[in-house]
Design a protein around this nucleic acid. Structure first.
Lengths: 110, 110
DNA sequence: CGTGTGTATCGGCATTCGCTTATATAAGGT
DNA sequence: ACCTTATATAAGCGAATGCCGATACACACG
């Protein structure tokens, strides 16, 4: 399953947002998502499974709870794909790199 | 239709790649995609439609041809969404900004 | 004009996906 | 041991999606 397929679902995107700032238990995630999307616990669990199995989330059991956290690698894939289009809205990305290099060069020369 | 839904399809992603470096006619795109994915002309046309209708591509008729080009706004949406996760793989993004600012400051002081 | 070429649309079908209810597993507390 | 809480899995169903063949539309050129 490709990264974009996983992110194609709004519930899964929301879950990632919810765990973006640190671990959350499946229960916490479920509570929020249930409220926002009106779907059942199994539905949320299935989405968590997709995120797990596709490398978007890691799980750590603590007692009877399961704490989910973001695994950035898969998301980074998306970022990499976007790279080739980024010049459209940051036309001066190269200029940015140049800027940095120039800053370094100038400091070196001092 | 959300941006990620559109990008969920590999054919549509490929089409965007194909028009990333400049306009391509529907025919050119179709030829490549047909070869790579083994799908029919109507199938490609439908994907082009989705890209069009969701703001990922613009069309410009030239005679009987239709030239497609990337419209970055929709893609940028995806980029914006990724923003909140980017710190995971570029922990020093702030440092980058600092770097640039420092370069500017130093040049100003010369 | 009529014929060909490029592209889009239509109708229908098969598959996929997400949801639900019901149930299983597993750990904790009493 | 039993019951509860937390989470996952199973089975089945309806909707959405993507594809195809057929067809329509539109422009170009003889």
């Amino acid at each position: 399953m490709h990264a974009f397929d996983v992110l194609g679902d709004p519930v899964r995107r929301r879950i990632l947002e919810l765990i973006a700032d640190g671990e959350r238990s499946a229960g916490e995630v479920t509570a929020t998502v249930r409220e926002e999307f009106g779907i059942s616990q199994p539905a949320v669990s299935q989405h968590l499974k997709v995120l797990r199995e596709n490398g978007f989330a890691s799980v750590r059991p603590v007692g009877t709870r399961r704490l989910y956290a973001v695994r950035p690698e898969a998301l980074q894939e998306v970022d990499v794909w976007l790279e080739r289009f980024r010049r459209f809205w940051t036309p001066h990305l190269d200029a940015l790199a140049t800027e940095i290099a120039r800053g370094r060069r100038e400091r070196r020369q001092q």
